[in-house]
């Protein structure tokens, strides 16, 4: 062993480990700070954090809840994923099943372009397509923006799930006379069930964390609950837009309260992430 070689090896090791530890620390700090700053406010508010409305500017203490925004988050992400999933399932199946055909290449170009669409651009586009004609920002416009975010993400995950199922399985399906529809349902979704479920949970987690596509579309109704089906056509808010609004607030109680809202968002995200991991781990 030459000395220069072992010196180089030692140098590489030290620099790799130092920078890895710094990086890990920085990432962990994010998680720790959310919990450490959020927890006191969550304890202060108790369960009302989940159903009360956010603090008003004239309030001294950051007391309140994220109720309306939490409902907005669940409804808008739910609608978005419900709309995107069927389209994504068929698009991903098409890309795997008809690989090499001209329309698949075309589909891929469209898919790549939608994937590259900045979320803030989605926001302004949905604004001019829906908000201006409807004359109001609405839960529906927000949900459709989110669906546009969910679609390419879900297609790319599902394409991975479907192409990991061996081709011979599909061929076996056709050999016993199954139609394409049944092959998709019984073979791809049947065998890839856990992958599909995990994809839906991951997409939900991704979509409910989005802020930019909602900024000009969903409105800023942080104090009113969606009450009926008609509320779909009225302004609403999500936890993400609530945090964004609160963090630009000049009033300390509101600015502080964003920690509590962040903690709620963090917990919802973690739950969905854990769900996606759990269903992926279990082969149903």
């Amino acid at each position: 062993m030459s000395r220069r070689r072992s010196l180089k090896v030692a140098l590489v090791r030290v620099s790799l480990l130092t920078s890895a530890l710094v990086s890990l620390t920085l990432i962990l700090v994010v998680h720790i700070v959310v919990v450490v700053y959020g927890l006191p406010l969550a304890l202060l508010n108790g369960l009302s954090l989940l159903y009360a409305t956010p603090p008003l500017p004239n309030q001294d203490a950051p007391v309140g809840g994220v109720g309306p925004s939490l409902v907005g988050t669940l409804v808008s992400s739910g609608i978005a994923v419900a709309l995107a999933t069927p389209v994504a399932l068929i698009a991903a199946f098409t890309m795997v099943e008809y690989r090499g055909r001209w329309f698949v290449d075309f589909l891929r170009v469209v898919f790549t372009s939608l994937y590259g669409l900045p979320t803030i651009t989605i926001s302004v586009i949905v604004y001019s397509l829906l908000v201006i004609p409807m004359r109001t920002q609405s839960l529906l416009a927000g949900s459709l923006s989110l669906a546009l975010v969910a679609l390419p993400v879900e297609i790319s995950y599902l394409e991975g799930v479907f192409s990991s199922i061996p081709q011979t399985y599909r061929e076996a399906g056709y050999a016993i006379g199954l139609t394409r529809w049944l092959v998709l349902r019984r073979v791809l979704i049947g065998i890839g069930r856990s992958g599909v479920a995990s994809t839906v949970a991951l997409t939900l987690a991704r979509v409910m964390g989005e802020t930019a596509p909602l900024l000009f579309t969903i409105g800023n109704a942080i104090n009113t609950y969606p009450s009926s089906l008609y509320s779909l056509l009225q302004p609403s808010s999500t936890i993400t837009t609530l945090i964004f609004t609160l963090s630009s607030s000049p009033f300390p109680s509101q600015f502080q309260f964003a920690w509590a809202a962040s903690l709620v968002l963090y917990v919802v995200y973690t739950a969905l992430f854990a769900l996606s991991r759990m269903v992926r781990g279990v082969e149903l």
């Binding site: 964390g209 989005e210 963090s247 995200y269 992430f273």
Partner: peptide, 11 residues
């Protein structure tokens, strides 16, 4: 990797 960016922004 999937943590909502608004959390990073507020922190």
């Amino acid at each position: 990797a999937g943590l909502p960016t608004v959390i990073y922004a507020y922190i």
